[in-house]
Design a protein around this nucleic acid. Structure first.
Ligand SMILES: [Mn+2]
Ligand SMILES: [Mn+2]
Ligand SMILES: [Zn+2]
Ligand SMILES: [Zn+2]
Lengths: 145, 145
DNA sequence: ACAGATCATGATAATCATTATCATTACTAT
DNA sequence: ATAGTAATGATAATGATTATCATGATCTGT
């Protein structure tokens, strides 16, 4: 099942309608691999169809998140960002505080330790977000010269 | 060196002045162990001295952060929160998405793995934030009944 | 002690992201 | 077709954060 089918299934499940504006927003979102803000996605959508409003983009991003196609990430730059979730391995982010460059990181060990911590406290895990902030190699070079 | 001395040292170092409003904000912040928003701290400060404005609270929180007395945490509830940093062991948070209850978590192993990941990518680490979201034991009970 | 110079303050406004409202339009089912 | 319901997009409301600026406080060098 591809991402679009999954979204269609979600809409049907919730008795929501599949509409042209929604299709376009979903399409544009799935076509970019960037970690977009609502504002950024809105601008991309506008290129396809300038009639589509900001509210629809925002609402559709919420639907995408609920449908499990999308998750929010926080780069500490003031706005929520959205990235693909479905069909992508879980990962976290290592972000340069100077230029914003980031890399996606993953460690199986790290995930296991987290699960243990959650269990120890009697919680039931839903999700987690790890952001590591630092200076990227490029910015380190610049600074040293 | 206690927290207030450290802050005084920071002010001196940056050629900033020690003022009565700043002292009060710092004092109130240090006296609460809660993870406060600017708004919440402002309300606490108002009880001590209603003349102090929101802007001063906000600015002082920024200074406290730069001075290493305070760090921001994100509980995904729309506002920045501030907690003590100086004299406190580093920790992350496990947050209940239903009632907001949270516990502070720490794992030496987890920290080491993070350090490794950062090094592997040639970054220089500044800080990190891990938020785990889940359902707390209390909310789990309620839901099952 | 005095006179700039500089900094801090607090009221207010500006900015920005997110969310709510609501009249209009589009779709669905009978 | 018709009535009922959902979706849309323009706009406004909300809330957090940041910027502005006139005023007051503090410092520095004389
Ligand atoms: Mn990513
Ligand atoms: Mn804490
Ligand atoms: Zn960088
Ligand atoms: Zn709970």
């Amino acid at each position: 099942m591809d991402a679009k089918e999954k979204f269609a299934g979600y809409l049907k499940d919730k008795d929501l309608r599949q509409s042209q504006p929604r299709d376009i927003v979903v399409d544009v979102f799935l076509r970019t691999e960037r970690h977009v803000t609502t504002q950024e996605l809105f601008q991309l959508v506008q290129k396809k169809n300038p009639r589509i409003g900001y509210a629809t983009v925002s609402r559709t991003l919420k639907l995408l998140t609920e449908a499990g196609l999308c998750r929010t990430v926080d780069f500490a730059d003031g706005a929520q960002r959205f990235e693909h979730e479905y069909g992508h391995e879980h990962h976290d982010h290592l972000i340069c505080t100077r230029c914003g460059a980031f890399v996606e990181i993953y460690s199986r060990k790290l995930e296991i330790i987290q699960d243990e911590l959650v269990r120890q406290h009697g919680y039931e895990q839903i999700s987690h977000k790890l952001q590591i902030f630092g200076i990227c190699p490029k910015c380190l070079k610049k600074h040293k010269s």
